[in-house]
């Protein structure tokens, strides 16, 4: 059963089109990933679905019922965890959860029972009476997720849940997402971490400049690069400047017209993509003749990252560093919206 159906959704801010006619659906009980760089339209899409932004054009259905322009009707069925905390700094973790339950009309006793249960499940029992402002970034994110599900919504919107928090908390949050999913919660997840999306999501959509450029299951997406051979070369020179790469790429193309050369995920790496098997020696020789000693050559198992780069043409490393900058700004109280 489709829990959410989005048809030709569009959002204009004056002359600027932030979301440009996107279409997608989310099946009940699945984790749907929404991937894209900073400014692609991920948060704007969530805002339109949850009633925080007006819809310029298009239609949104929840459980088959059209709620375009009347999000209040649907908000009781939604849990929303924004990219930045929106809980009350002066309230304790416990008070925040009980208050959030009451906002959804939960009676005090029920709200308190559920708050106690969630604090336990999320490992926040000991911090329950602490003021929210004393929480670490990771704890705040966990409590925000708990607040998002206190009323047991039909669908949970998670906007960049692991951005800007340390590795250990990010792992805990991923585990919480898996756990929620196993209990039947439908999750709409926006992220810029491809490996996170690959690990968690059943279906995905890539959004770039307000348009969905690819949508499907992880398996369907992986088919796009099946049979492709990828070798990553670690070189003795950093490719931090785009000019370096452009020059090498031009020469590479004239020498090896059947192969594709791409920037690797690390600064010192280049990748060769080919539809067939190939020997390494001519490539090692090519690089070394240009003063680029090869330290390592490694066969790469094709991942969703390759699909993303292939489909969007966006360098993943650049996208993630931009997004991390955004996360850091958010931690300092700033932060922008995409």
């Amino acid at each position: 059963m489709k829990i959410i159906e989005v048809e030709n959704l569009k959002k204009n801010f004056n002359e600027f089109t932030a979301v440009d006619g996107v279409n997608f659906y989310i099946n009940q009980g699945e984790i749907f990933g929404f991937l894209g760089p900073n400014g692609a339209g991920k948060t704007t899409t969530i805002n339109m679905l949850t009633g925080m932004a007006k819809i310029t054009e298009g239609k949104v259905k929840l459980m088959g019922e059209d709620y375009t322009g009347n999000a209040k009707k649907a908000q009781a069925m939604m849990g929303i965890v924004p990219d930045e905390s929106n809980l009350y700094e002066e309230l304790s973790g416990w008070e925040n959860l009980v208050f959030c339950g009451a906002l959804y009309g939960m009676k005090k006793k029920l709200s308190e029972e559920r708050a106690a249960q969630l604090l336990k499940e999320f490992g926040l029992e000991e911090a329950a009476s602490k003021s929210f402002k004393a929480y670490s970034k990771g704890m705040k994110r966990k409590l925000a997720i708990a607040a998002g599900i206190i009323h047991q919504p039909e669908i949970l919107f998670l906007d960049e849940p692991t951005t800007g928090i340390d590795v250990a908390f990010a792992r805990q949050i991923r585990n919480l997402i898996v756990d929620l999913h196993s209990k039947g919660t439908t999750i709409f997840l926006t992220t810029h971490y491809i490996e996170e999306a690959e690990r968690l999501c059943e279906r995905l959509a890539f959004i770039v400049q307000g348009k969905i450029v690819r949508e499907g299951t992880v398996e369907e997406m992986m088919k796009e690069i099946q049979g492709e051979n990828i070798v990553n070369f670690t070189l003795g020179k950093d490719f931090t400047l785009r000019d370096d790469f452009t020059k090498i790429e031009e020469e590479f193309r004239s020498h090896f017209p059947d192969f594709n050369l791409k920037m690797g995920t690390k600064n010192s790496g280049l990748r060769i993509h080919s539809p067939s098997n190939f020997t390494l020696f001519p490539f090692v020789q090519f690089f070394e003749e240009r003063g680029l000693p090869v330290f390592e050559a490694k066969i790469i198992r094709p991942s969703l990252e390759e699909v993303f780069v292939k489909v969007t043409g966006i360098e993943l490393q650049k996208m993630q560093s931009e997004q991390n900058q955004k996360g850091k700004k958010g931690q300092k109280g700033g932060g922008s919206r995409s």
Partner: peptide
């Protein structure tokens, strides 16, 4: 400013 008002706007009340 602290975005906590957003929490209220997202609640299913008019």
């Amino acid at each position: 400013k602290s975005r906590s008002f957003e929490r209220l706007l997202l609640a299913p009340i008019s």
